[in-house]
């Protein structure tokens, strides 16, 4: 469960990225964040991944208020949220295995289990057998899928992706989206920021439109973006 309650985000350079954003994403839901570049989609994702903290308002992820979370608790929090970037942020001088294994390594997972789970994760994204290959030897689509394998290997309950299909042609983009859909089907909350509206329509999931740092609502109706009464929220935690 992800809840934004009247969230404002102002960056040190004075730019107001989000103003008064309230939204709610249910566990196991798959949601598309859409809107123009610079509208605030990335800021929403950064706040969920705790790469940023809100200037005002509260962001709650899995019952944890990110505003009040102490820095000591940040690493444990980040293990609950898998992140996929458009530029995938792989370590190009490390083989695929090391890249995918990293979230398990930092969580002190036993070596034998790491080995098994890396294979499983690579299998899920269709890259089994590429463990020893350097990311630079892979195609962009394959690199993107390595990034997804890394984001999901620790089985985080929340998976977020910022323009994961930005560099891909339609066929590859569709393939990557199907991978995300499969994770949603096993109970992972998936939030994808994209401006590929065709892709959004194809998958028919809820769409949250962000415009000028505010929730502009889904244009074609759909579930409301408003916040249910707070007591109900607390009860669900």
């Amino acid at each position: 469960m992800i809840v934004f309650d009247r969230v404002h985000k102002r960056y040190p350079n004075g730019r107001e990225a989000l103003s008064n954003v309230s939204l709610r994403i249910a566990p196991g839901e798959m949601v598309f964040l859409t809107g123009r570049s610079g509208a605030g989609k990335s800021s929403v994702l950064k706040l969920i991944a705790l790469l940023e903290r809100p200037t005002r308002g509260t962001v709650t992820v899995n019952g944890i208020n990110t505003t009040t979370l102490r820095s000591r608790g940040v690493p444990a929090f980040r293990r609950q949220v898998g992140v996929v970037f458009q530029d995938h942020k792989l370590l190009m001088d490390r083989p695929v295995f090391d890249n995918v294994a990293l979230p398990l390594v930092v969580a002190d997972t036993p070596l034998r289990e790491i080995d098994r789970r890396v294979r499983a994760a690579l299998d899920q994204v269709g890259l089994l057998g590429k463990e020893g290959v350097l990311p630079s030897e892979l195609s962009i689509g394959e690199q993107q899928r390595v990034g997804i394998a890394r984001a999901v290997i620790a089985r985080p309950p929340v998976l977020i992706a910022d323009e994961p299909t930005g560099n891909l042609d339609h066929g590859l983009a569709l393939e990557v989206m199907r991978v995300f859909k499969r994770f949603q089907e096993v109970g992972v909350t998936v939030i994808i920021a994209t401006h590929d509206l065709g892709l959004v329509k194809e998958f028919g999931q809820r769409e949250i439109v962000i415009e000028n740092g505010q929730v502009a609502g889904p244009p074609g109706g759909g579930p409301a973006d408003g916040l249910p009464p707070l007591p109900a929220l607390q009860a669900r935690r």
């Binding site: 790469l51 444990a76 293990r79 792989l90 930092v106 620790a154």
Partner: peptide, 16 residues
Amino acid sequence: RSEIEVTKLVGGTNAF
């Protein structure tokens, strides 16, 4: 730097 950023992103502690 980039390695440290990614490690922290996936939940690496400062000690790690």
